[in-house]
Amino acid sequence: MDETGKELVLALYDYQEKSPREVTMKKGDILTLLNSTNKDWWKVEVKITVNGKTYERQGFVPAAYVKKL
């Protein structure tokens, strides 16, 4: 869990989004888990830094590609 009590997951593999509802992740990324009720796709939040500014983006990743921490 992070400092706000949200559950975290670890990306076990790289994943490139294939639709606007998904998010890209790299092996080793730590993501915030938002919803894991679907056994195949989990909703996560990723933080992306571009030119020194951090953005948060929500989307789905394959559940088999992440592990709860």
Rank of each mutant, 00 (worst) to 15 (best):
M1A: 15
M1K: 13
M1C: 13
D2Y: 03
D2T: 12
E3M: 11
E3W: 05
E3F: 05
E3R: 03
E3C: 11
T4Y: 11
T4N: 14
T4H: 13
T4R: 04
T4I: 11
G5N: 14
G5C: 11
G5H: 09
G5M: 15
G5W: 11
G5L: 12
G5P: 12
G5Y: 12
K6F: 09
K6G: 10
K6T: 10
K6N: 09
K6R: 13
E7T: 12
E7R: 12
E7C: 10
E7N: 13
E7D: 09
L8G: 03
V9K: 01
V9Y: 07
V9E: 00
V9M: 04
L10C: 07
L10Y: 12
L10K: 08
L10A: 06
L10P: 00
L10R: 09
L10Q: 13
A11T: 03
A11Y: 02
A11Q: 01
A11H: 01
A11S: 06
L12Y: 03
L12F: 03
L12M: 09
L12G: 01
Y13F: 14
Y13T: 09
Y13G: 05
Y13C: 10
Y13L: 09
Y13D: 08
D14F: 03
D14M: 03
D14E: 05
D14H: 05
D14R: 02
Y15D: 00
Y15W: 11
Y15E: 01
Y15N: 01
Y15M: 01
Y15L: 02
Y15K: 00
Q16H: 11
E17T: 08
E17M: 15
E17H: 08
E17G: 13
K18P: 04
K18H: 10
K18E: 10
K18Q: 15
S19V: 04
S19L: 08
S19F: 07
P20E: 09
P20M: 10
P20C: 07
P20L: 08
R21P: 04
R21K: 14
R21W: 15
R21T: 13
R21D: 11
R21L: 11
R21A: 14
E22I: 03
E22F: 05
E22V: 04
E22Y: 04
E22Q: 13
V23W: 03
V23D: 00
V23P: 01
T24H: 04
T24I: 03
T24K: 03
T24M: 03
T24Q: 04
T24L: 02
M25F: 09
K26T: 08
K26I: 08
K26W: 09
K26P: 01
K26C: 09
K26D: 04
K27L: 04
K27G: 05
K27C: 06
K27M: 07
K27H: 06
G28C: 06
G28S: 02
G28Q: 02
G28E: 02
G28A: 02
G28I: 00
D29R: 02
D29Q: 09
D29V: 03
D29L: 03
D29C: 04
I30Q: 05
I30P: 01
I30N: 02
I30M: 06
I30Y: 06
L31E: 00
L31F: 08
L31S: 03
L31K: 00
L31Q: 01
L31Y: 09
L31V: 07
L31I: 08
T32D: 05
T32W: 12
T32P: 15
T32G: 07
T32E: 07
T32S: 07
T32Q: 10
L33R: 00
L33I: 04
L33K: 01
L33Y: 01
L33G: 00
L34V: 14
L34Y: 04
L34M: 07
L34N: 02
L34I: 14
N35L: 07
N35F: 05
N35E: 11
N35H: 07
N35Y: 05
N35P: 03
N35Q: 10
S36R: 08
S36N: 11
S36G: 11
T37P: 03
T37M: 09
T37I: 08
T37K: 15
T37V: 10
N38K: 07
N38R: 11
N38F: 07
N38E: 11
N38V: 04
K39T: 12
K39C: 08
K39I: 09
K39E: 11
K39R: 13
D40Y: 09
D40N: 13
D40E: 13
D40M: 14
D40L: 14
D40P: 02
W41N: 02
W41Q: 02
W41V: 03
W41I: 03
W41Y: 08
W42N: 01
W42P: 01
W42R: 01
W42H: 02
W42T: 03
W42A: 03
W42S: 02
K43S: 07
K43I: 12
K43V: 15
K43E: 13
K43P: 01
V44H: 00
V44G: 00
V44D: 00
E45W: 06
E45R: 09
E45M: 14
V46S: 09
V46C: 07
V46Q: 14
K47F: 12
K47C: 09
K47M: 10
K47P: 12
I48K: 12
I48H: 09
I48W: 11
I48P: 02
I48N: 07
I48R: 06
T49S: 10
T49Q: 11
T49M: 13
T49P: 06
V50D: 09
V50R: 09
V50F: 11
N51H: 10
N51K: 07
N51R: 05
N51A: 13
N51E: 14
N51D: 11
N51S: 15
G52N: 09
G52D: 10
G52F: 07
G52E: 06
K53E: 12
K53D: 10
K53P: 04
K53Q: 14
K53G: 12
T54P: 09
T54K: 08
T54V: 14
T54A: 11
Y55I: 15
Y55L: 11
Y55G: 07
Y55E: 14
E56P: 08
E56K: 15
E56C: 11
E56G: 12
E56W: 14
R57K: 13
R57G: 03
R57E: 05
R57D: 04
R57Q: 07
R57M: 05
R57I: 06
R57V: 07
Q58C: 08
Q58K: 09
G59V: 03
G59K: 02
G59N: 00
G59H: 01
G59T: 01
G59W: 01
F60E: 04
F60C: 08
V61W: 00
V61Y: 00
V61I: 06
V61K: 00
V61G: 00
V61H: 00
P62E: 01
P62V: 01
P62T: 01
A63Y: 02
A63H: 03
A63F: 02
A63R: 10
A63M: 04
A64P: 08
A64I: 13
A64V: 09
Y65V: 05
Y65F: 12
Y65W: 06
Y65H: 06
Y65A: 13
Y65T: 07
V66L: 14
V66W: 01
V66A: 03
V66F: 04
V66P: 00
K67Y: 10
K67W: 08
K67N: 06
K67C: 11
K68D: 04
K68M: 10
K68P: 09
K68F: 08
K68N: 06
K68R: 13
K68T: 07
L69T: 06
L69P: 04
L69V: 14
L69C: 09
